[in-house]
């Protein structure tokens, strides 16, 4: 289970914050479980084959660039923090 991000902490990077909201309120809507910026997204079947497509589409709209399939690897998608670092907003 992912850790909860509601505790007191330093302000989040705006891209991390936007991604966190998208994942928790859209992709995982209806799920009891919520993720934190450092939660391993692909453990425990949180992200399925439809959710990954929605996440990629969201990132493509935010960055204004198509993401080539060969860049869709664990090193770039492990956590929300990793994604924000590798796919910054335009």
């Amino acid at each position: 289970m992912g850790s909860n991000s509601t505790g007191a902490s330093a302000p989040l990077n705006p891209t991390v914050e936007i991604l966190l909201r998208f994942v928790n309120e859209d992709l995982l809507a209806g799920s009891q479980e919520k993720v934190a910026p450092d939660t391993a997204l692909f453990d425990e079947g949180r992200i399925d084959s439809l959710k990954i497509l929605r996440l990629i589409a969201f990132l493509e709209v935010r960055s204004g660039k198509k993401i080539p399939d060969e860049l869709i690897v664990m090193d770039r998608f492990r956590t929300i923090e990793t994604i924000a670092k590798n796919f910054p907003d335009r």
Binding site: S49, L50, I52, L53, D69, I72, M74
Partner: peptide, 12 residues
Amino acid sequence: EIRGKKLLQQIK
């Protein structure tokens, strides 16, 4: 969903 399955397989 072939592309989604493929990408998930690739990431994992």
